[in-house]
């Protein structure tokens, strides 16, 4: 398969997953505000500040908005085209990538993506976002699910499909780790607060942003405990949004692409992913908390980045370059070196 096509499929899928995750995060944070009583402005500000931090866009946000409010932050994460990770930006990029491989994907996939893209850029989208944000973010999530469902059911499960899976699962693992990491920050000041009312709300919210509440309660019947939530989202073997689950998928896709058997590797990407997976397979929550949850999650994000760039080097090595700015004309000028020529006779 052409590298350019594989590259576009990978990013197409990654951007859609990104849009979905951003929608989840914003939605849950909005809902959380409802759960809190007596939030003063300062608290609200803190609440949103942490969200901006989770996407590493504090500077950009400060340049564009006066202060973090529910409206400004959700606008920033949803519609702001300057923000490369906003839902609108993610969907635009997903569509751009889909256009590049329009001949490779099915009409249904293209139409669904195109519909989402046209919707988020419409006036109607803004209107709905104002009047019914939950409904709005649900539409984004549903769109992504429909797209993924279509991909599974109409796209041939060949090499291209594996690249789509890779993009989706790397992105998802990364986002789950970020969601956990942010809340970890909030909860950090006092470990003794663990088990308090605020805490339960916060950790429930995390589960909700990963659509994991029901699944969690299947496993842990009773209470929502930070320890268990973290364990569930990091180490669950079968919950599809857990980091471990996603890494299993990444590893499996990489192996199917190259045909390398398990426990071996044929390139850097497989080496990184194999390592990360066995780390997850052989970790317990005790180890994780002992090394520090934040540090642990940070390490996972770094590993995921490493896998991403190794995939790039292995399979897409020639990037979709901007030839216009890259190809230079080389021409040799006559008389270029005549600096020291003595004056000519007449």
């Amino acid at each position: 398969m052409l590298s350019r096509v594989a590259d576009s499929l990978f990013w197409l899928s990654r951007y859609i997953e990104r849009a979905e995750n951003t929608a989840r995060i914003v939605d849950v944070n909005l809902q959380m505000l409802l759960d809190f009583q007596r939030m003063d402005d300062e608290k609200i500000k803190d609440h949103w500040q942490s969200l901006i931090k989770s996407v590493d866009e504090e500077e950009l946000f400060d340049a564009l908005y006066k202060k973090p409010t529910s409206e400004s932050v959700t606008e920033f994460l949803t519609f702001q085209s300057e923000n490369p990770d906003s839902i609108v930006s993610s969907l635009s990029r997903a569509r751009e990538n889909a256009r590049m491989v329009r001949d490779q994907i099915s009409t249904e996939m293209w139409e669904e993506l195109n519909r989402m893209y046209l919707f988020v850029r419409s006036k109607q989208a803004r209107k709905q976002w104002k009047s019914d944000p939950y409904g709005f973010y649900k539409l984004i999530r549903d769109g992504s699910h429909l797209f993924q469902g279509l991909t599974d059911s109409v796209y041939p499960h060949d090499e291209g499909w594996e690249f789509i899976q890779l993009g989706r699962h790397i992105e998802r693992a990364d986002k789950t780790s970020r969601i956990l990491d942010v809340k970890y920050h909030i909860l950090l000041p006092s470990v003794r607060d663990v088990g308090g009312a605020v805490d339960v709300v916060q950790w429930s919210a995390i589960l909700r942003s990963c659509s994991a509440q029901e699944a969690y309660h299947h496993v842990y019947v009773n209470s929502v405990e930070p320890w268990k939530v973290a364990e569930f989202l990091i180490l669950s073997e079968d919950f599809p949004r857990s980091i471990r689950f996603c890494c299993q998928r990444v590893d499996a896709s990489l192996r199917r692409i190259s045909g390398t058997p398990e426990h071996e590797f044929s390139n850097e990407a497989e080496k990184c992913s194999g390592r990360l997976l066995s780390n997850l397979n052989y970790s317990s929550m005790d180890d994780i908390f002992a090394s520090g949850l934040h540090e642990y999650l940070d390490g996972i994000q770094r590993d995921l980045n490493r896998i991403g760039s190794a995939i790039f080097k292995t399979y897409f090595f020639y990037p979709a370059t901007d030839l216009e700015n890259e190809i230079r004309t080389q021409q040799h000028q006559q008389q270029q070196t005549r600096d020291h020529t003595s004056p000519a006779t007449s």
């Binding site: 890259e326 230079r328 004309t329 080389q330």
Partner: peptide
């Protein structure tokens, strides 16, 4: 031209 061409970079 004595030499002429293109390169990437």
């Amino acid at each position: 031209p004595p030499t002429r061409g293109t390169y990437r970079g």
